[in-house]
Design a protein around this nucleic acid. Sequence first.
RNA 1: GGGCGGUUAGCUCAGCUGGUAGAGCAGGUGCUUUACACGCAUCAGGUCGGCGGUUCGAACCCGUCACCGCCCACCA
Length: 909
Amino acid sequence: MLDKTFRPEEVESRLYALWENQHAFACNPESNAKPYTIMMPPPNVTGSLHMGHALNHTVQDVLIRHARRTGRDALWQPGMDHAGIATQMVVERQLAEQGIGRRDLGREAFLDKVWEWKAESGGAISRQLRRLGTSPDWPRERFTMDEGLNAAVRKVFVELYRQGLIYRDKRLVNWDPKLGTAISDLEVEQTETKGKLWHLRYPLKDEPSRWIVVATTRPETMLGDTAVAVHAEDERYRDLIGKMVVLPLVGREIPIVADEHADPEQGSGAVKITPAHDFNDYEVGKRQRVPFINVLDAQARVLAEAQVFYLDPDTGHFSPEATLEPLPAAYAGLDRYAARKKIVEDLDAKGLVEKIDDHVHTVPHGDRGGVAIEPWLTDQWYCDAYTLAQPAIKAVEEGRTKFVPQNWENVYFDWMRNIQPWCISRQLWWGHQIPAWYGPDGEVFVAESEEDAAVEASAYYGTATALVRDEDVLDTWFSSALWPFSTLGWPEGQDMLARYYPGDVLVTGFDIIFFWVARMMMMSLHFMGDVPFRTVYIHALVRDAKGQKMSKSKGNVIDPLELMDKYGSDALRFTLMSMAAQGRDIKLSEQRVEGYRNFATKLWNAARYCEMNDCHTAAPLDPAAVSAPVNRWIVGELAATAAAVTRGLEDYRFNEAAGALYQFTWGTFCDWYLEFTKPILAGDDAALVAETKSTTRWVLSHILSLLNPLMPFLTEELWQTLSLGNELPLMLEDWPELADGLADPAAQEELDWVVRLISSARTVRAEMNVPPGHRIAARLHDLAEPRRLWAGRWEEVICRMARLERLEVAPAGEPVATGQGVAQVLVDEATLALPLADAIDVAAEVARLSKSADKSLKDLESIDRKLNNPAFTSKAPPEVVEEQQERRAAELARLEQLKAAIQRLGAPA
RNA sequence: GGGCGGUUAGCUCAGCUGGUAGAGCAGGUGCUUUACACGCAUCAGGUCGGCGGUUCGAACCCGUCACCGCCCACCA
C-alpha cells in the first residue's frame, strides 16, 4: 500500500540511479530512429545551480524526454564551460587567502592549481542537475578544455587567421584594471554614477593670462591630453582655433582644433582630447592626427613616463614603439583616483579650476571585476565579426533558424547588423592559449602546434629560430561558439556530426543571445556550412521581486536546491513549466511551488485510491469500446487533455501543457470521475465495475505518462509501484497516441449537465445553510428524457447524487413539488426541487432566485441589443449570429423557469 | 537618443485567430463525507492603466499619453 504522501527524498536518488544504470538517457547512434539533438548550454565549472539553470534545464529536459518517448533518437549533449575569468578569480581568491599571488606561482603551477580545483570542486553543478532530474547523455559530457575541444579551438583560430578573419591590432580596448585583462564590449556594463564635472583652465601659449576652459569628468587623464577641440561654428572659440595651449602641470603644447565631436551645448563647449584614454577622443585623435599618449599602467596607475604613439595616416597603424616622455614625478605610481584628487588640488592651487559641478553620468564597469573600465591602447587579437555575421544574418532571415518567440529575431538582427570587431584575447592564464608564436623580431607564426610554427619560422628565417608563444588566452566565448560541433567530434570524427548536427533546438535566456547564440551561428555557418540549430527557444529570466537579475553578489538569490529539499524536484519543475509562458521575467514565489507540491500529493493519493480499489490490476482497456457514459466521458476528456499536452510541448507552450494536466487531473479526474464512480465500484453490476476499474487504470496510466516529462520522479515511482507498464521504465515508454474520435459529445454533454446539476444543488445547500448531514428528498422535473443518455437509468444519477449530496431524487414524472419550503434549481430545461422544510428561509430563497433572474434578464438584454442591431445581423458571420440567437432562446427559457420557480414560492415574479 | 516588453481580481500571472473575462494563492463561510486537511464544498472579488480611433463587436487591432522594467548607443 502506498504511503499517505509522496516522499521525494526517498525516491529521487533511487530512481535517478536506476535510470542511469539502465542507460536510459543515452542516445543510440546505431538506431534507425530520427535523431533529435539539444546542445546543453554548458554551465560554468564554477557554477552552482540557480533558478535560471533550473528553468533552462527543466525546459530542455522536458523537450528531450518528450522527444525520446516519441521514438526519436534523442541526444542531449551535456558539458561544462571552463569560464576563464570566473574560474581564475575563484582560484586566485583561494590562493590569496593563503597569501599567494598567481604570479608568485608562475603560469604552470597556477594552472595545476586550477585543474586541481576543478577536480575537487568544479562540476558541483552537474550533481545538482542530476538532483533536478535532468536526463542528458552523461557519459558524453564534454569540457571546453578537453583535448578534442582544444584541437577544435586551435584549428578554428588558425583557419580564421589564414583567411584574414582573425588579426592582431593595436587599438583602444576595454581594459579591466582589476583583472588586468582586456574584455569585450559585451562584458562591459554601464553603471549610473554620481560624479563631478570639473571645469579646467588651459592657458594659451601666446597669451598666458588667457585660457580656454574645458569640462571633464576625468581630470586625471589630462596628463595624456594632446588637443583641445571646439566646434567650428562656436562663436566663443572661433578665434582660438589653430592656437596652442600649454597643458598645465605637464607643459606639453597642444593645439586647439575644430572638430564635430565638440558639442557647444555640453560642458564649456571646449573638450580636452585624450586619444589614448577615451573612445570618442580616440576617433578625434585619428581625425586630427594628434599623438596618442598613454599615461596609465595595467593597474591604472600613473606612469613615470608617458608612452607616445603616432598613427601612420597611410597605413592606419600605430608606430610599433612608443616614444617616452616624462610625466610630473608627483603622480607617478598613483592610482587613477588618487591621481585625480592630487591633480585637481594642484590645478586648484594654480587657480586653474574654474568650477566643479555635480554630475550624474554612466560609467562603464567590468561585469566580473566590477571596477570602472579603462580604455587602454594595447595590442590584442580581433575577430572580424562583421564578415562572419553576414551568413548568420541571412540564415535567420531565410528562416533556417527560427527564434521562439519570434520577436527576439529583431534583437539578434539589430546587434548582428551593427556588429563590431570582437576582441578575443584575454590577459589570463586559464583558458585556451592563443596558438601564435613570435620570432625575435616580433614576426608572428600562427599554427596548430609549436612544431608547425617552428617549421614556418625556419622557412621564414632560413634557420631554426627560438620562438616565444603568445601568453594570452582566448575569450571563453570563443570555445563556446564552437560547442555545437566541437562536442560532436569536429574536426576529427565525422560520424556523430553527420548524425546529430545540426541540433533541433537551443534553449537559452535572452541575456546570452549576443554572447553565445550569435557566435555559434557565425562559427557554425563558417565551419559547418549549416546552422547549428533549427530553433532557438528563448525563455524568461528568473528575477527577484524587484525585477533585478538574481546574483550572488546582490544576495537576492532564491536557491532551487532549498526548494527541492522542501518540496521535491517534481514540484519545482512543474512550477517552472507552469510559469514558462510569461514574458521576460519570472518572479518566483515559494507559495506557487508549495501549490504544485500539493498537486503531486493529490495525484499520489488518487493513485493510492486506485490501488485500494484494485484498479491498478484491472484488465487493459480498449478506449474505443467503453460503454458506460461516465467512462466514455472520462476517456474523451483524457483524449482532449492528451492532445492539449502534446500540442503544448510541440509548440513550446509549456504552461499550457502543465495547465491542461493540472486541470484534468485535479478538476476532472479527482473531483468528478473518481467521485462518480465510487458508487459504481460499491455496486454489484460486475460488468460495469470491471469496465470502470479498467477505465480508471487506463486514465491514471495516461495521466502519469503525459505528466512524466514534467514530473519524472513521481510518475515513474507510481508507474513502477503499481506495475502499470511492463519492464520498461515509464521514461522509455511510448508517448500516448490516442485515436481520433474518442471524444463522445453526447456523454460529455450528459456529464456536464450532471456536474452543473450537482454544483447547483450544492450552492443551494451552502447558501441556504442546510446542515451538512441533512438529507433532502429532492425531485427532478421537466427532464427532456430523449436527450438524456441515462433517461432509463436514473438510479445511477440518484445513486451518485444521494451519495455526494445527500439527495434522494424521486423519479421524473411526479408532480412538481411546490410550496414555501421548496428550493429550486434550474439546469437547462430541468428543475430540481429541494424540499427543505423548515431549513429554508423563503425570503432568502426568493432573493437568491431573483438575483439569478436579474442576471438572466441583463444577459438577455445584452443579447437583444446585439440581435436588434441590423449592422450586427447583416455584418457578423452567420454562425456568430446563430450562436447569439441560441443563447437568447436558452436565456429566455431560463428566465421563464426562474419566474415560475419564484411564483411557486408564493412571491410575485 | 534608438528599440523591446509590461500595466487584467488583494498578490503572482494566463487569456493563441477580435465574438459570454480565467487560474493559483490569499480572503469569507461550512465540513473528523473510510484516496488526499498538502483535503472537500461554497462564496466574494474586475472601469482589462487613461484618452481617442477602427469595427456589427475590442482585454486583444491602430494612435496617443502615463507609469514600471529591460536592452543598445551616448554622456564634457
